[in-house]
Computed example of a mutant assay.
Amino acid sequence: MPDKKIPQIKNEDQYEALRDQGYSKEKSARIANTPDQVAGRKGGKAPAYEEWTRDELYDKAREIGLSGISKLRKKELIERLRNH
Rank of each mutant, 00 (worst) to 15 (best):
L72E: 05
R73Q: 14
K4P: 03
I9C: 08
A17L: 09
I6W: 09
E56K: 09
D55T: 14
K71R: 12
K25C: 09
D3I: 14
D59V: 07
R41M: 12
S70Y: 08
P35K: 04
Q14R: 14
M1F: 05
A39D: 15
N33F: 00
M1L: 08
T53D: 00
I78T: 05
K25R: 14
E51I: 09
D55I: 06
Y58S: 03
Q14C: 08
P7A: 10
G43S: 13
P2L: 10
E76N: 03
E12S: 15
N33Y: 02
P47A: 04
K27Y: 09
K27L: 15
A17T: 07
N11T: 14
A29T: 00
T53F: 01
G40P: 08
I9V: 15
K42H: 09
Q21G: 08
L18D: 07
R41G: 07
G40I: 08
K4M: 13
D3R: 09
E51N: 08
W52L: 00
I9K: 01
I9S: 11
Q8I: 12
E76Y: 03
D55S: 01
Y23Q: 00
A39Q: 12
A39F: 11
I6E: 06
R19H: 12
D59F: 03
E76Q: 13
Q8C: 11
P7Y: 06
K42L: 05
V38K: 10
G22D: 10
Q14M: 15
N33H: 02
W52K: 09
G68A: 02
A39V: 11
H84K: 08
A61T: 06
K75L: 07
L57P: 03
K60C: 08
S67W: 02
A32E: 10
D20K: 15
N83I: 07
K4N: 13
L18S: 10
D3C: 13
P35W: 01
A17Y: 10
E12P: 10
N33R: 07
I9H: 04
W52P: 00
L72S: 06
L57Q: 02
G43T: 06
K45H: 14
E16M: 12
R54P: 07
R82S: 06
K45V: 13
K45D: 15
V38E: 10
R80D: 05
V38I: 15
A48F: 14
R30N: 05
K71H: 05
A48S: 14
D59T: 05
Y15L: 04
E12Q: 15
K42R: 08
E26A: 13
D36Y: 09
R80C: 10
R19I: 15
G68E: 05
I31D: 09
A32H: 00
K75A: 11
K71D: 14
L81N: 07
E26D: 07
L66P: 08
E56L: 05
G44A: 08
R41A: 06
P35G: 09
K74V: 01
A48H: 15
A48V: 08
Q21Y: 10
P2I: 10
M1I: 11
K74C: 01
I64Q: 02
S70A: 13
Q37Y: 14
I64E: 09
R41L: 11
K25H: 04
A46K: 10
L66F: 01
M1Y: 04
